[in-house]
Amino acid sequence: MTVNQRHSKNSATIAEKNNGKDEGIVAQTGKTWGRDRGVLYAVLPAKIGYGQRTPAGYILPYKVNGLLAWTISHAVYLAGAYYFSWWSPSIIHDNWGSLLIAANIYGFFLTFFVYFKAYYFPTHPADRKYSGSVLYDLMMGIEMNPRFGELWDFKLFHNGRPGIVAWTMINLSFAAAQYQAIGTEIVGEDGEWKRVWGMLGWVRGKTGCYVTNSMILLNILHATYVLDFFYNEDWYLRTIDIAHDHFGFYLAWGDTVWLPWMYTLQSHYLVRNPVDLSTPYFLFVLAMGFSGYYIFRAVNHQKDYVRRADGNCKVWGKPATFIRTKFITSDGTEHSSTLITCGYWGE
Score class of each variant (00 low, 15 high):
F113L: 14
F148E: 09
I242V: 15
V114P: 02
N219P: 01
L221F: 05
A56T: 04
R37S: 11
D304P: 00
R53C: 06
H124S: 07
T224E: 06
I164F: 07
P274M: 04
V306D: 06
T111D: 04
R324L: 14
I25T: 13
L237F: 05
G188E: 11
N18K: 10
L156R: 02
K31P: 00
H301F: 15
F284V: 12
D331A: 13
N312S: 11
V257F: 14
T264Y: 02
H246C: 06
R297F: 00
Y106H: 07
L135I: 14
D153G: 05
G34A: 14
A181K: 02
L67A: 06
R204I: 12
F284A: 14
H268P: 00
S85G: 03
G188S: 13
D228E: 15
I340M: 12
I101W: 10
R238N: 10
H335I: 06
F247N: 02
P89Q: 01
R6V: 05
S214M: 13
Y305N: 03
I164A: 11
T325M: 10
W167N: 06
W33Y: 15
T212V: 05
G292E: 07
A42F: 08
W87H: 13
D234R: 04
L68I: 08
K303D: 13
T338E: 11
M288V: 10
S278V: 05
G38E: 06
N159P: 01
N65W: 01
V134L: 10
P122M: 04
G289A: 07
M140Y: 15
F154K: 02
T207S: 12
T123R: 11
L68F: 00
W253G: 02
S278R: 07
S98H: 09
F322L: 09
R297P: 00
G317W: 07
D241L: 05
E143A: 07
D127E: 12
H244A: 09
Y77F: 10
T256K: 02
W87C: 03
V203I: 12
A15P: 01
L78A: 11
A181N: 14
F157K: 03
N232D: 03
M144H: 13
I170L: 12
I323T: 14
V226M: 02
A320D: 09
I216D: 01
P122D: 04
W167E: 04
K326Y: 15
V226R: 00
S131G: 15
L339S: 14
A42R: 09
G289D: 07
T321N: 10
N213L: 07
M169N: 04
Y83T: 05
G248T: 08
Y294H: 14
F113N: 08
N145C: 08
P125G: 06
N273W: 10
A56M: 00
W87P: 02
V299N: 07
W261Q: 06
T13R: 14
N10V: 01
W261Y: 13
V299D: 10
L100V: 11
E150F: 06
R147H: 08
P146N: 06
H158I: 09
K117W: 08
E189C: 00
L78Q: 07
W33Q: 08
K194T: 15
D310K: 14
